[in-house]
Design a protein around this nucleic acid. Structure first.
Length: 137
DNA sequence: GCCAACGTTGGC
DNA sequence: GCCAACGTTGGC
């Protein structure tokens, strides 16, 4: 079991929208590092769902329900998509500023590489953020 | 809206 | 293969 963090701009596709849809195709990734992370995802892996630009906070947990396949939105190039489904929202969102303040989260790629949109997180980091969101695993 | 950080492109 | 120029992302 691996843990991840995925970013989305909430005015484009929010966690609430994912909760409504029940499932979504995570496509449109055009960054090699992020793509390679998508390809490493396994069914059942859990993802922290982060709202970038608006909110700047982790708002929920999603899970991988379909492993990587060719991204149908890619007109050219070698890109991948996965399918994600909602697990649960955090009782209280965990903001970027809280994450930056937390001693156990200083290695988080979200902090160290702001531009990466799909990144692995350790189980410890995942647990800390979920606990900060006051939600049970 | 600005700008820093990063990735990509293209000239040499 | 280097590096400058450019485009994009994302925090502020």
């Amino acid at each position: 079991m691996q843990y991840w963090l995925v970013k989305s701009e909430p005015d484009v596709y929010s966690f609430e929208q994912l909760a409504t849809d029940g499932k979504t195709r995570w496509d449109g990734v055009r960054n090699y590092q992020a793509r390679n992370n998508l390809r490493a995802m396994k069914t059942g892996d859990l993802c922290l769902y982060y709202h970038s630009n608006i909110g700047l906070e982790v708002v929920g947990i999603a899970k991988v329900v379909k492993e990587h396949y060719p991204d149908p939105t890619a007109e050219k190039g070698d890109w991948s998509a996965v399918d994600l489904a909602p697990v649960k929202p955090l009782a209280q969102p965990v903001t970027l500023s809280e994450i930056k303040k937390h001693p156990a989260l200083q290695q988080l790629l979200l902090v160290r590489n702001a531009r990466l949109s799909v990144m692995p997180v350790s189980f410890d980091e995942f647990s800390v953020i979920v606990q900060m969101g006051e939600t049970q695993l």
